[in-house]
Write a protein that binds this DNA or RNA. Structure first.
Lengths: 256, 256
DNA sequence: TGACTTATGTTCGCAATGCGAACATAAGTT
DNA sequence: AACTTATGTTCGCATTGCGAACATAAGTCA
């Protein structure tokens, strides 16, 4: 367990159990007890007890040999979604923007150094990875992340950037901290961010911040497309007004 | 803890921790330590340790007084979603059907006595509750649930129905077990289910099963609308073919 | 078919983990 | 100021959960 965990008041069994849940992914849909133990870095007997507990609670299923997650696990994430009124509010706007512009539209929030998708309307599969509610992407390399980072004070930004490990996803990816900061100043000035081919070649997106009634930025909304389909100029001329209209309406609803 | 939990090999700390996560909902977005303790049925000092552990792991945030779930909790549900290839596969078909028919379209699977939404495309808010990935509804009162139940053997169905507590959501809700079974025979015969105003007045939906290449039913897909907008006849004449086309295509993809 | 490897099932002594009663302090209300 | 409700914290203790070790099962290979 991470040494940053304060062992006083820290419950290792809970931490271990959550690690067991996270042992499952696309490449590990149905795995054996030993695989779970290895992936969760637990003793086999210990992993077994966790799997049996999760099975008793309905979060895991098993055929007696392999284990896989039960849809009940969605309830955990669901606890988060239904405790966030914004997810309900924005969904209809996301659908509306997506219909208007004919491209995928998403809303996300900042969590640490990443953006987390909380709402999404996809028109086509254009990314190599699938994006869903719950997907996390590095904030520094996404348009939604940049509008959220641009809102931070210098101090807050420094704290966040300390934890960022810049990755060069493509030849266009900004990896110089100062260059990023300059870009964020520009984003703040113009009130939107455009990211072209920094996270994945061939893709670009534009994002604007979503404000609540106290003028606090609570999320960001973007439209994502392919560079071959929409130029940066067209993003600002045709797409940006749709996003700006949407966030104006969202702010009204959030102000009720 | 439920007496059905086998205390041998059962890890109460994990169970308790998951209950803490589920203490949060729409009416309990940000709650105090004592409220968490009450809702999770824990001693206050115990609840405090769980909240501090969840905070250390990033699943919960706090202002020192109130606690709320962090979007990191979505990772837990996300572990399930990315371990289910079907969620990726069906999303584009859900979007397609929804676009074609101009109504909301969803996919769900059976989990115990409930259906769990795993994919959704909403055109309008027509239900009083919001439906998201993770939402659970009683299988017996939904079209998607009925196509999934219709696939069960008599024995399997009896096991499931034993655990069902029939609720009369509206005056149209079937609550007689035999009447439900008769309805399921009809569903099996015709290969689709229509539910009108049984879960909520004013709403109707039609669902068909999704098969994999072994002819096993793995999920169901529906279109939901308002009774004022689409008759049952129109559902079968216009909507059903779109759903049937979609499941044919889905089956091809699942067979790759 | 036997040897070997890899896997799971299970136990139980034990130590550490987590518990919760109790006390202290803080904040809000009357 | 008294009272109520809340949180912060401790620490003795009992139970919980651990994991080494052993048993058994299943698969592979020669």
């Amino acid at each position: 367990m991470s040494s940053s965990m304060n062992t006083k008041d820290f419950i290792t069994s809970l931490a271990r159990g959550l690690k067991v849940i996270q042992s499952f992914d696309k490449e590990h849909r149905k795995i054996s007890l030993s695989q779970v133990a290895a992936r969760a870095e637990l003793n086999r007997a210990t992993a077994r007890r966790f799997l049996f507990t999760l099975k008793a609670l309905g979060y895991v299923n098993s055929d007696g040999k392999l284990f896989w997650l039960s849809p009940k696990v969605l309830e955990l994430g669901y606890s988060y979604l239904i405790s966030q009124p914004i997810t309900d509010i924005v969904q209809s706007f996301v659908d509306q923007v997506s219909s208007q512009v004919g491209e995928s539209c998403s809303v996300s929030i900042l969590d640490g150094t990443e953006v987390v998708y909380i709402s999404r309307r996809m028109t086509k599969h254009i990314m190599s990875i699938s994006l869903n509610v719950g997907t996390r992407l590095p904030a520094v390399a996404t348009s939604m992340g940049r509008v959220l980072l641009a809102d931070k004070s210098i101090e807050e930004l420094n704290v966040i950037l300390e934890k960022v490990q810049f990755q060069k996803f493509t030849k266009h990816t900004l990896t110089d901290e100062q260059a990023l900061k300059d870009e964020l100043l520009k984003v703040r000035d113009q009130g939107y961010a455009i990211v072209s081919e920094e996270l994945e070649l061939g893709l670009r997106s534009i994002a604007v911040p979503i404000y609540n009634k106290y003028d606090q930025i609570v999320a960001s909304i973007n439209v994502g497309t392919q560079v071959a389909r929409i130029s940066e100029q067209e993003l600002t001329k045709r797409i940006l007004p749709c996003l700006q209209n949407a966030v104006t309406e969202i702010r009204k609803v959030l102000s009720v």
